[in-house]
């Protein structure tokens, strides 16, 4: 038990160091001068022309980033399969 606790503390410290380093390197709030916005500019200006969809979010989710949605659907499928598998004995 003591070993698990010390391992948890070590992992907590490592994760906290990474989070603090990330927070220190973040840009000031509202300062957009040094951000590369070419991707979202392209999506905002060309979504209707390229996909014909008015809803830019759906266009990004199902067209520009369809592979990510495939992973999302796989996660849902795995969750349903796991729940049905776990409760299979009780549902007989």
């Amino acid at each position: 038990m003591a070993m698990r606790n010390s391992a948890a503390i070590i992992f907590f410290v490592i994760v906290a160091i990474f989070i603090i380093l990330g927070l220190l390197s973040i840009h000031p709030f509202g300062d957009t001068s040094d951000i590369n916005t070419s991707m979202d500019d392209h999506i905002i200006q060309n979504t209707q022309k390229e996909t014909g969809a008015d809803n830019g979010v759906t266009a990004v989710v199902f067209d520009y980033r369809g592979f990510d949605t495939l992973g999302e659907a796989t996660v849902l499928f795995t969750a349903v399969a796991g729940v049905i598998l776990v409760f299979r004995r009780l549902n007989k």
Binding site: T51, G52, A53, T58, A59, F62, D63, G66, T69, A73
Partner: peptide
Amino acid sequence: AGLLPLMNLAV
């Protein structure tokens, strides 16, 4: 919007 409505329906 091409495939988007069909994919929305499937999902």
